[in-house]
């Protein structure tokens, strides 16, 4: 049973990312969208936490949100996979449920 967890807040502004990460586990996925997309970029203060999470959990980022924020060609964290909106739809279909961490 797998959950697609969606985070849309910057961890530099709100604690939603860490609040989500401590409650997900084996088989879950985390999709970073909107203001959360920037933490998929390598070199932020959150990279160790995200890399550790990726040992059990799949990580995705919504590419159009990265592009919009100037990170099209940025080096991303190794475990992060990019999706477009079509890929976002596929992720929702592939998981049993969606949990939006608002």
């Amino acid at each position: 049973m797998s959950t697609l967890n969606i985070v849309n807040k910057s961890p530099f502004e709100k604690r939603t990312l860490e609040q989500c990460l401590k409650r997900v586990g084996d088989g879950d996925s985390v999709l970073l969208i909107e203001d959360a997309s920037i933490c998929a970029v390598a070199g932020t203060a959150y990279q160790d936490q995200l890399n550790a999470t990726a040992e059990l959990t799949k990580l995705y980022v919504l590419q159009p949100d990265l592009d919009a924020r100037g990170f099209t060609d940025a080096k991303l964290l190794e475990p992060v996979q990019c999706v477009d909106y079509t890929g976002f739809v596929e992720l929702v279909a592939q998981h049993d449920r969606v949990h939006s961490w608002l």
Partner: peptide, 14 residues
């Protein structure tokens, strides 16, 4: 984001 998601879902035949 909701609009883009719905648009993509419809395009994909959902």
């Amino acid at each position: 984001t909701a609009y883009q998601f719905v648009h993509a879902a419809l395009q994909a035949g959902h």
